[in-house]
């Protein structure tokens, strides 16, 4: 995913700090939890965008949220900082950029795997292995369930897509039927 300049700048800063403290894995997980909470809450997304909330109001609400999530001081201070700077609406993008940079730093690559039902451990391991062979990097699988693909697997890794879904095969069939040569 191509990150914006804002996301890159903030993610580089927090990653550098977390790496220095050797907490980049933990911080990554904490940031994931914070981003997930924001992604699942319309009220929190409105808080980050609506100008009728003052910075003090936002900081108070976010502080309470972080306390409940029991995050480390680095994560807490970072999220409070972006709240103060009015960048809270970019949290998902910043976290994605954080992972991209952390993975690049560790020689890892993330693969987004779309399936109808989560892969069994055996198939996940096979997929990880083959992707590592193809990319030459350690692969982290991120599975997401999407029934619209009907069946099969879609993998996005390193800017490439390996689409083995039933939906793609049906689309291919649809295209062939539409073409004059069909």
């Amino acid at each position: 995913m191509k990150s914006s300049t804002i996301a890159l700048r903030y993610s580089q800063a927090v990653l550098a700090l977390a790496t220095d403290r050797k907490q980049h894995e933990q911080i990554g997980r904490e940031l994931d939890r914070v981003a997930a909470v924001f992604a699942g809450s319309d009220e929190l997304r409105a808080l980050s965008r609506n100008p009728k909330f003052s910075v003090a109001d936002r900081k108070a609400i976010v502080s309470e949220l972080l306390k409940r999530l029991m995050v480390s001081p680095i994560t807490r201070n970072f999220v409070m900082l972006i709240t103060e700077k009015g960048r809270l609406q970019h949290i998902a993008e910043i976290v994605a950029a954080y992972h991209d940079q952390a993975d690049a730093q560790a020689g890892r690559i993330r693969a987004q795997v779309t399936v109808v039902a989560p892969l069994a451990e055996l198939e996940a391991a096979r997929l990880r292995t083959v992707l590592q062979k193809m990319t030459g990097k350690q692969v982290v699988l991120e599975q997401q369930v999407d029934p619209s693909i009907i069946g099969g697997v879609v993998t996005r890794v390193g800017g490439r897509i390996y689409d083995g879904s039933v939906r793609a095969q049906l689309e291919s069939l649809r295209t062939r039927l539409r073409s004059p040569a069909a």
Partner: peptide, 8 residues
């Protein structure tokens, strides 16, 4: 599962 295996 069969589709996943074929894909792999």
């Amino acid at each position: 599962r069969r589709l996943a295996v074929e894909y792999l």
